[in-house]
Design a protein around this nucleic acid. Structure first.
Lengths: 347, 347
DNA sequence: ATTGAAAATGTAATGGATTACATAAAATGA
DNA sequence: TCATTTTATGTAATCCATTACATTTTCAAT
């Protein structure tokens, strides 16, 4: 019934009620209506009630475009990711979305496709007053190169640090986590430990993990047996597997830069007749939900993705509210989750 | 250097250049500037050049809020998903994002958390002039119940049909795909075929797949051996596995409602000493990237996720441009990808 | 050179909410 | 009761781009 009416309205290009309409209905000024809605406490109870009734009866909802224009705030945050379909990042998104929504902000998503040009373009979202701040994953924001025209928007880097410019970051401490992995493998008796690293030249996370790997080995008086640098995906894992197979002295344990690489690695080994952890212990990074359900289940570092999202948004909102106070980065702790893909050497 | 300047500007709350500034600089009216930017062909080459130079020198970018207000178009599309972190949907997102961006639209993301209330709230995005249309996954939009106040926005349903209201849908034909799966299993000699279905009561995709499963069996003169209804996630797969194990006459093949369920199922079986496909053939649905790299690799239905995203956005944009012309739904074909998790019975 | 049509540009209203400032009403105090 | 705050409300400017309508310029045709 109601639905019917709405549909008709829609078809005749319904005149959406505005503040004016509410004001007329409630017999007060638009200023009063505006205040009644945004600061109810400065309005008398009597008029407040009148306004609320008028809002109700007109079906008024604020026009965000008008509000944005006037307040010079869009009420939106831009999320820039190389690939929205990354399993790990999509988990972080939940935290981002939930926190932003709770704070009354909406989330704009843009894929950078790892493309400098797009990244530059996307920053214009803020200049265009489409977004009040940017959450960026990936280490090459245009500001780094002084290429951004106009004002520099509030930014928070997620997962990856951004070098060369003071942008607060929210990420797991990858170096510490990597060390933990290596110490764990050492504790299992492994001495020849290899590492399939991520895109070290581009991603700080990959660098950090690599650094932690080397440092922990050094601590134990060892050095890297084998390192293979790749991308964060499964194909990379299979390529690395081929290389591992061809090694004269194969590492007995391999620390992968992320779970997907580990899956690709395991999968390729499996197809060549090798078994994990019988022939090699494998550790991932991220703990995406599948890690627990893969065969074998994957020993990995659990990243608190929800919290990463939450903290990143909070940091960004703080920055938006107080543009000139520099904020500290947040580095969270990753947790080692031992599962089936690793075993004590020789057992 | 430039960076320095920008920073200063920012700190003194830089006055962002407006159309007026460009007009002044180019010594033309704001109308001319506006036209030069949006319809370059109605402006003389001479003034066009002047305007372009002025834009360049002032660093002008359009204020989307002002534009939205005036045009009554936000230039954004809202994506409503139960869970942004769903591996499959995040793949669809790529197509959505790319197509929208190309058409000059941005993407707003909102999690519905499978929550009616939130869904209702989120529709207000359109009323608020934050979004021009909605891409929704999940079958219970408020319009269905006549609960939406105000105008009904352009909607396209993605992956799930919406019953009871004429909303164009973009999805794979789940019934056909399910039939293909069953025929394939029959062709491998299986006769006792079970199905782990999705949330049949809520998701049309689950219903369709279930229907196709039953229909194909009926075609072959068989009936369902075992059906277990669950959610689209891995935990559900493990629960189903327990049940499968306890069956007196276990199906020799199980068609899972999605890849994640299949992974959960396989994983639980593995831990109980069963082997896939030795003890049971397993088929998934979706073909998320991991399906190829799991152990065993998963026979599944490949959904053209990229295309789903592309088509959905195109359909939505058409709807936005021609609000009164009803559009047909698009049903794409899923493709069976045979892999290691299925085998000929008795081989 | 003159007229009419076409092309280019300008003027000013418009979209809808917010807010500085002004005024009115109510509350407080002497 | 009158003066003085305090509280509540109103007036009107403002945010910035778009566009209907008006005006001017250009050009072709006679």
């Amino acid at each position: 019934m109601k639905h019917q009416i709405d549909l008709e309205k829609y078809q005749e290009d319904a005149l959406v009620p505005t503040l004016q309409d509410v004001a007329r209905q409630a017999q007060v000024s638009t200023a009063t209506v505006s205040r009644a809605l945004s600061q109810p406490d400065v309005v008398s109870k009597r008029t407040l009630k009148r306004v609320q009734q008028a809002v109700e009866s007109t079906g008024y909802v604020v026009n965000e475009a008008a509000r944005s224009l006037r307040k010079k705030k869009s009420g939106a945050l831009l999320v820039m990711v190389p690939a929205v379909s990354s399993p790990f990042f999509s988990l972080v998104m939940r935290g981002l979305e939930a926190t932003a929504t709770q704070a009354g902000y909406s989330i704009l998503v843009a894929n950078t496709e790892d493309d400098d040009f797009k990244e530059r373009q996307l920053f214009s979202y803020v200049q265009q007053n489409r977004a009040d701040g940017v959450l960026i994953r990936g280490g090459r924001p245009p500001v780094q190169k002084g290429e951004v025209q106009g004002r520099i928007p509030p930014i928070v880097a997620v997962n990856e640090r951004i070098e060369g410019i003071a942008v607060p970051t929210v990420a797991v401490n990858g170096e510490d986590a990597a060390k933990e992995v290596i110490r764990y493998l050492l504790g299992l008796g492994h001495r020849r430990i290899g590492h399939i690293s991520g895109p070290v030249s581009r991603a700080s996370s990959a660098t950090d993990r690599f650094r932690g790997y080397e440092a922990a080995l050094r601590e134990a008086g060892l050095t890297s047996t084998w390192n293979h640098a790749t991308e964060y995906n499964m194909e990379s894992g299979t390529l690395a597997a081929r290389e591992w197979i061809s090694l004269p002295e194969r590492p007995t344990a391999v620390f992968c830069s992320c779970d997907e690489v580990a899956f690709g690695f395991n999968s390729a080994l499996y197809r060549s007749g090798f078994r994990v952890p019988r022939d090699v212990s494998v550790v991932g990074f991220d703990d995406i939900p599948l890690a627990e359900f893969s065969i074998p289940s994957l020993t990995t570092i659990r990243q608190p993705y929800q919290e990463i999202g939450v903290r990143a948004v909070k940091l960004l909102l703080e920055q938006i509210q107080h543009p000139n106070e520099p904020l500290d980065s947040v580095f969270l702790k990753g947790e080692l989750i031992p599962r089936e893909s690793t075993r004590r050497l020789g057992e």
